[in-house]
Design a protein around this nucleic acid. Structure first.
Lengths: 396, 396
DNA sequence: GGACCTTTGTCCTGAGTGTGGAGAAAGTTG
DNA sequence: CAACTTTCTCCACACTCAGGACAAAGGTCC
């Protein structure tokens, strides 16, 4: 099947495409209400979009008391590929043009195996999705990697946890393999975009999205747009120092947030607690599995284990301390916490909230919700799809 | 003399006005090079601007090998008033439309005397500037206050160091008194705009501007625009906690940055050092003046006083610690340090740089200049003038 | 069922926006 | 003084866009 190659010819068309993406099918009249164009001009632009095949008119909507309207919608056969490469696993999903996830696959894999091996896996997962009939091809792909990215070129730069990827032309390579446009970003930024598109952050202009997985990062959204910083490393809060005499971190410094609280740090602390006999619950789990993860800590805490609860409380305090600083500085309208350790749930949230509300000034915290992400692992892939759709749905 | 009341009728005209403001007089041809419009369209818009009187054509420029060009410039009789209300003094300046300072007055005054008394003083200073022949009236005024502002309305909200100002309609009141449009902002944001317009931050898109005076604040510039946050309190870094067991702060918390390092904290520490006999240099100055300020510490340090140098080093470390966190988070292209304690100069800068380069990741610090502001007290008033000119030079 | 209303969408005219070329104006250079 | 540059103006033409008239297609009410 022939893939769509058309792009919006002007800002109006781009605007209309995004409205249809975010709001679903619409009549011409409804579009007109949102777009501040005359009916005539709107009709012209819609007709042009229909000609390109990017949108279709299928069927009539129910009458609302007058003439029935045509349903204008994005071409239903459009397909985006969303790829989220985490430190320890790969998520791949197909979406339609409205960014609804039609199929989603996860595969455990260490990112340190390097770009070649990871790409092979990504392509195989994408092929599997295609084979299942969800897509005959992709009109675009977004991909997130766990490290800083030089955004315009789509190339990772000096990524601490994935050294083999430094300078690897991710965008170029994937675009070649898939035969479609590709955009690359930091995985945290994609999570922020995902929660903004379909999660808790809808209709918030300025917000922070803290992702705690193997490492810790923070997506920064300013006026609805992801802020990436001068060299693409904005939001890299894992190496903010929380304790001058603290633990040694992989980065070479001491007392980094990430060394005290992250998926990896938490697992290590839990294993220590188990071995030192401070937690029968964790010890039993260590016995059974040979190693512990953040999920074990969450389960132990749910079972009332004091040591596990302590770990979460202490970690939440550290994290809350940093978030409190960021709230004072950035004055966001919302803080979202997500990533692998979200399973720690409300215990974690409680510690963070306590710290933030205690340390930041009332004006900044007055009406500040601090919530868990609601999309889980789909946030990243939806964000990836949105990344490429933002690119494709902008004037050529 | 009749004041200008015209405003640009469209985005092109606004663009042209800003080009003339930032680049000074220009020929039509030079404007055309910067503006991506056809010569014909450009000529039309310039003619319309000439009709409104916002710009004038005066004289011919020297030939560059062909026909001599007309000098197009902003109307030379346009006058903006820039007001910077600090915690302990008021700065007022007149500028022309190119934001060149034509006259500048400073008057010591405690902001806590309240808006009525301060306004009286501001108006008297403005009258003095008018009386000196620098202006016959003002086409607009910008004003900065040392606390958070609800920007669209121009009203201070919950300002910690100027409690009597909470909710006072600064914009409304000043506009009434001066009979011209007024915009209000945080003083730190104005400093950031000033340094961006005429100081060290020219042509930098994303940067931070840390102002250390009686308190500590940080102007945040994203893509050339000041970022103010959800409730207008963005950049309020004075109350970030740097030491959980630290000193009591006026805000009710312990260990705030501002409690450890700011103009006020530094003066107190210096007086302590003097009384405890740790610094003969400072003791002599305390004897002479009855009290000490940051300037005394700077002078003592310049004279080689060990205690003063220690104070600066320690303060710079605290500040550097916070800035390091912000650099990791925000990934700016430049960090500017300004405000009252800039006199501490390179000793302060050295400590800050050490901390930042030590604590933040190389990708964020790799090419990151950390410099002192170069405009001193004029940064604020120039920023204020730019604030109102940005407002007036945008489509009505 | 028919008169009347609402909603949706199309068509047309006219005002305004913007481009590019021709060419006039005003200088320099040899 | 001829040739060339640069600057600026004028004009014809294409495109953009708004708003009104009107047609299409349904409801609602008696």
């Amino acid at each position: 099947m022939r893939r769509m190659t058309a792009r919006p010819a002007n800002a109006h068309q781009a605007r209309l495409l995004r409205l249809l993406r975010d709001g679903g099918p619409n009549s011409r009249a409804q579009l007109g209400d949102q777009v501040d164009l005359s009916r005539s001009k709107l009709a012209v632009e819609v007709d042009r979009l229909l000609e390109t095949g990017l949108v279709v008119a299928d069927g009539l909507a129910a009458s609302r008391g007058g003439r029935r309207s045509h349903n204008i919608r994005l071409a239903p056969e459009l397909r985006f590929l969303g790829v989220d490469i985490g430190a320890t696993s790969i998520d791949v999903a197909v979406t339609n043009a409205e960014l609804e996830v039609l199929g989603h696959l996860n595969h455990p894999m260490d990112v340190r195996e390097g770009p070649v091996a990871v790409f092979e896996q990504v392509l195989s997962l994408a092929a599997k999705l295609r084979a299942s009939g969800l897509a005959e091809g992709f009109d675009g792909a977004g991909i997130g990697v766990p490290g800083p990215v030089r955004f315009p070129e789509g190339v990772p730069v000096a990524p601490p946890i994935m050294p083999g990827w430094d300078g690897f032309p991710v965008r170029e390579a994937l675009s070649q393999e898939l035969g479609c446009p590709v955009m690359v970003d930091n995985d945290v930024n994609l999570m922020a975009m995902g929660e903004q598109h379909a999660g808790v952050a809808r209709s918030v202009g300025d917000y922070l999205c803290v992702k705690i997985g193997t490492g810790i990062g923070c997506g920064i959204v300013v006026g609805g747009e992801v802020y990436r910083g001068t060299t693409g490393s904005a939001g890299d809060i894992g190496h903010i120092q929380v304790d001058p005499d603290g633990r040694a971190c992989a980065c070479g410094n001491k007392g980094c947030l990430e060394a005290h609280f992250s998926g990896a740090a938490l697992a290590r602390d839990a294993e220590d607690a188990a071995r030192e006999g401070r937690s029968p619950e964790l010890a039993a789990r260590l016995e059974a599995a040979g190693r512990l993860t953040a999920a074990d800590v969450a389960a132990a805490a749910a079972a009332g284990d004091a040591a596990a609860l302590d770990l979460i409380r202490e970690g939440g305090n550290r994290l809350g301390q940093v978030i409190a600083s960021l709230v004072s500085f950035f004055n966001p309208g919302l803080v979202v916490i997500g990533g692998g350790v979200t399973g720690l749930g409300h215990n974690l949230l409680a510690s963070v909230r306590t710290q933030v509300y205690k340390q930041s000034l009332p004006l900044a915290t007055g009406n500040l919700p601090i919530v868990l992400g609601e999309l889980g692992p789909t946030a990243g892939v939806i964000g990836a799809a949105r990344l490429i759709s933002d690119h494709l749905f902008s004037p050529a």
